[in-house]
C-alpha cells in the first residue's frame, strides 16, 4: 500500500512540475514563435511589397475586428509616415483557395503590390501567379477603388498565360479585399498612425 501511494505521489508531483515548467516556457516563447511563423510563411510576400520601408512590418502589426473575423494589418513606414499597409485577402482559384497578401498606399488607395502566399494551383500554370514576378509587378500602382478584371473580361490585368481561372481568382480576391478595406479604412488609418516615427 505504501509503495502504491509513493508511486502515485512521485508521478503526480513530477507531472505537475513538468506541466508548470512547460506552461512557463510556452508563455515566454509565444510571441517570438508567432513572429517567426509570420516571417517565414507570410514574410517574403510582405517584404517584397514593403520594399524600402524603414521599419519591420511584421513587428508593427495590429488587428481589427471585422464582424466575426479578425483581420491582421502590417504597417510599412515610408519617409517617416505610416502610409503603407498590408493585409490578407483570399480568392478562389482552380485548385481551391488562393491566399493573397495585398499592400495598399493609404493616401492614394493605390496598390503597393501584391503577393500570393498559399495556393494549390497547377504547377507550371496557375502556380506561376506566385512565381512569376512580372504578373505580380503589374498590380503595383493600380487603384483599389476600381474592380479588378482580367483583360479577356474587359479589365486591366494581364492574365498568366494558360491560367485564366487562377488569374480571375486573384482578381476576384483583390476586388473582394478592396470592399472590406473601404469599410475599415477609417479604423486602419487611425491604428496605423501609431506606428509613424
Amino acid at each position: 500500500m505504501r509503495d502504491i501511494i509513493k508511486m502515485i505521489v512521485v508521478l503526480a508531483l513530477l507531472g505537475a512540475l513538468s506541466g508548470g515548467g512547460l506552461a512557463f516556457v510556452k508563455t515566454s516563447t509565444e510571441e517570438k514563435i508567432e513572429y517567426q511563423q509570420l516571417k517565414f510563411v507570410k514574410g517574403p510576400a510582405i517584404q517584397e511589397i514593403m520594399e524600402g520601408c524603414s521599419n519591420d512590418p511584421i513587428v508593427d502589426r495590429f488587428t481589427i475586428k471585422d464582424g466575426e473575423v479578425e483581420r491582421s494589418f502590417y504597417v510599412g513606414v515610408f519617409d517617416g509616415k505610416a502610409n503603407g499597409v498590408c493585409y490578407e485577402g483570399e480568392g478562389k482559384g482552380f485548385g481551391g483557395a488562393i491566399g493573397l497578401m495585398v499592400g495598399v498606399n493609404l493616401e492614394t488607395d493605390e496598390l503597393l503590390g501584391m503577393g500570393v502566399t498559399t495556393h494549390s494551383e497547377t504547377p507550371g500554370l496557375g502556380a506561376r501567379a506566385k512565381e512569376d514576378p512580372s504578373f505580380r509587378a503589374q498590380f503595383k500602382g493600380m487603384s483599389l477603388t476600381e474592380p479588378f478584371k482580367v483583360m479577356t473580361d474587359g479589365g486591366q490585368v494581364d492574365a498568366v498565360s494558360g491560367a485564366t481561372i487562377t488569374s480571375r481568382g486573384v482578381c476576384a480576391g483583390l476586388t473582394q479585399s478592396a470592399e472590406f478595406y473601404g469599410r475599415l479604412k477609417a479604423q486602419i488609418i487611425e491604428e496605423a498612425a501609431a506606428f509613424a516615427n
Partner: peptide, 11 residues
C-alpha cells in the same frame, strides 16, 4: 522545451 525554443529562435 527544445522544440519551443527552436521554434522561437531557429525556425
Amino acid at each position: 522545451i527544445v522544440e519551443l525554443v527552436m521554434q522561437a529562435y531557429t525556425y
